[in-house]
Amino acid sequence: MKVHIWHTGRVYIDQALAFREKGLHPIPYSGWLRGENKKMWVPVSTYLIEHPKGLILVDTGWNEEIRINQKKHLGRLAYSMFRGELPVGESIVDKLNEFGVKSSEIDFVFLTHLHSDHVSGLSHVQDAKKIFTSELELKSANKKVGYIKSMWDGIPIDTFILEDIPYGPFNKGLDFFGDGTLFLVHTPGHSEGMFSLLVKMNEGWLLLASDVGYAKKSWEQMILPGVTSNKIHAKKSLEWIQNFSQRKDCIQVIANHDSEITPFTIGES
């Protein structure tokens, strides 16, 4: 088992989007009427898991269209709140080419949730053998504002139904292969159907925490993301991440947008 941590561009956001603030501004996470001193660049991560039962891509990063016309790609509202950057060599297309894998050779694409920085590049890998997200997330994303539905429109996405598992804030998710090596863990709050991944490595558990928290300090200091679909659920999910990170058999917890994480591979001999 190997897990490759890649950065597929970065995103320019208000710091309150990553780390919730209290103040007079009603929606500081929007960045509206906030100075440049409140803004920050954070990476947009994807993960390639070499599992004995298949090659798995987790999230897709930015689409290459963002290099030439991101206002059109994101839409006016999103573009007014954040900006993306995708240097040459960092798109999911670039990363897969460098790795020597075609998108059609990917067995599974997991979309932890359907916010734009996680699904923007989906069209680049739409010929993967299977694309999955949670049923709850897809239903929610198709109904609510805050999602850019054109990013998955016309692309076949399979969904999974939550089952009882021994992990997570609600003990819900999916033992994907049925052998205890890969759990999709229901960790809602930032979005209704978001999930994290528990990967069984030789040394212990690797937890890919998606956007439950934006960085390690999120669960160490219990700082929620600025945007939540359910604050109570978000807090419970972050508490579970905090508790799991303290387990002796947890080798690492990785947040998707942590600036302290640089690309590397876990599981190399």
Rank of each mutant, 00 (worst) to 15 (best):
83 R>S: 09
49 I>M: 11
50 E>K: 09
31 G>Q: 07
99 F>Q: 10
35 G>H: 06
33 L>K: 13
43 P>D: 10
84 G>Q: 12
16 A>C: 09
62 W>L: 14
56 I>Q: 03
74 L>I: 10
17 L>V: 00
62 W>I: 11
41 W>G: 09
50 E>P: 02
65 E>S: 14
101 V>M: 02
99 F>I: 05
54 G>R: 01
90 E>G: 01
85 E>F: 02
66 I>L: 13
71 K>S: 07
25 H>M: 04
78 A>S: 14
52 P>G: 07
70 Q>G: 08
86 L>S: 04
24 L>Y: 08
65 E>Y: 04
31 G>I: 11
21 E>D: 02
57 L>Q: 06
59 D>A: 09
34 R>H: 08
27 I>F: 13
46 T>W: 04
85 E>T: 08
86 L>T: 03
99 F>G: 01
27 I>N: 14
100 G>K: 02
21 E>C: 01
30 S>E: 08
66 I>C: 11
42 V>P: 02
98 E>R: 15
96 L>P: 07
16 A>T: 02
47 Y>F: 15
87 P>L: 08
77 L>M: 14
58 V>H: 13
39 K>Q: 13
20 R>S: 07
52 P>R: 09
73 H>G: 06
14 D>K: 08
89 G>E: 09
45 S>I: 03
29 Y>C: 03
85 E>M: 12
98 E>D: 14
49 I>Q: 07
47 Y>V: 02
81 M>G: 03
15 Q>T: 10
29 Y>A: 15
71 K>H: 03
101 V>L: 12
36 E>H: 10
78 A>H: 14
14 D>F: 02
32 W>T: 08
58 V>F: 05
37 N>K: 14
96 L>T: 08
77 L>E: 12
55 L>M: 12
25 H>R: 00
66 I>P: 03
67 R>V: 04
19 F>S: 06
93 V>R: 15
87 P>C: 09
47 Y>A: 04
76 R>Q: 10
86 L>P: 01
61 G>Y: 10
71 K>P: 01
96 L>C: 13
86 L>I: 03
63 N>K: 08
82 F>G: 06
36 E>Q: 13
25 H>F: 02
15 Q>W: 00
66 I>E: 05
53 K>T: 01
64 E>C: 05
42 V>K: 09
16 A>E: 02
67 R>N: 07
16 A>D: 04
103 S>R: 10
81 M>P: 00
83 R>Q: 10
56 I>M: 11
51 H>T: 10
66 I>R: 06
31 G>D: 03
55 L>V: 08
32 W>V: 13
100 G>P: 05
19 F>H: 14
48 L>N: 04
90 E>A: 05
88 V>L: 13
77 L>C: 01
59 D>E: 11
14 D>T: 11
62 W>Y: 12
45 S>P: 01
62 W>S: 11
92 I>G: 06
37 N>R: 13
52 P>K: 06
88 V>Q: 13
18 A>E: 02
93 V>S: 14
100 G>H: 08
71 K>V: 13
55 L>D: 03
66 I>K: 09
74 L>W: 03
